[in-house]
Amino acid sequence: MSDASDATRGRSDLAAAFDDEPALVSYVAAGDPSPAATERYVEALVEGGTDVVELGLPFSEPVAEGTTIQNAIKRALDAGMTPDVYLDLVDRLDVDVPIVCMTYYNLIYQFGEEPGPEEFVAAAAEAGISGFVVPDLPVDESGPLAEACREHGLDLVFIVAPTTTEERLERMLDRTTGFVYVQGRLGTTGARDEVSDDTPDALARLRDTDAPKAVGFGISSGEQAREVVASGADGVIVGSAYVDIVAEGAEAGDPTSEVADRLRALADELKTGAVAGVPEPEHK
């Protein structure tokens, strides 16, 4: 959404992040293992080639997450992460890419004085968030959040699952702004060694969709990123593979800078892989 506020915030807009070459969307859980570390990690991910940061706001009941991100959320909550601390962290982040807030609906709904999404969306826009991914909010229940996002110029990204029916897909695409989050496999988040056989089919049925398509759930290497882009994706979404690095660092007590170096290196590998996957004739 290219309104004036995007320019004044100094951030590129979400859909535009996919314009030039395949985009790398990188997830970490805010506050894992501390807000200060998250700041460094996000900077490193952007230095490594990340085009969109998907910053998780930890919720106590993360039903869409596999073990890796569940544990990250627990570390962040134990270290004191709250919606207010999250918004401060976003406000402090000094990166030149859009930031998407990934969280569960109850936190958005409870924020502020009155129940409902309006107050959190306003505060998120103010802090510099560009859009939302809310895994427990299907399109059927998304009316109030979609309206608040529209009002504040934020994007609302929906997850298209392997099980999504054509009828549901149409309704989701009607409301999608920013990009389409293509869930590459059944189940929950978590790094896998192989690209799922479902992924090319999922992309094939979105071929005529204007919005950029990014594939997530299970991508952890540059080779997988290349394969997914070669199958027609406009971007890749990676989370658990980074969170594994954060978890190992936290466990070993490694300095933040060393963990940040590893994150930067993985982002670079993923971005290089994604770019290598662009089919020659269609290279923009």
């Binding site: 869409a64 609906y105 895994p135 299907p138 997850i159 699952a161 099980t163 999504t164 029916t165 549901r168």
Partner: peptide, 14 residues
């Protein structure tokens, strides 16, 4: 009430 579940489950819920 309502149906606040991940999209992957919505077709099963329907």
């Amino acid at each position: 009430g309502g149906q606040y579940v991940p999209e992957v489950l919505m077709p099963a819920v329907e």
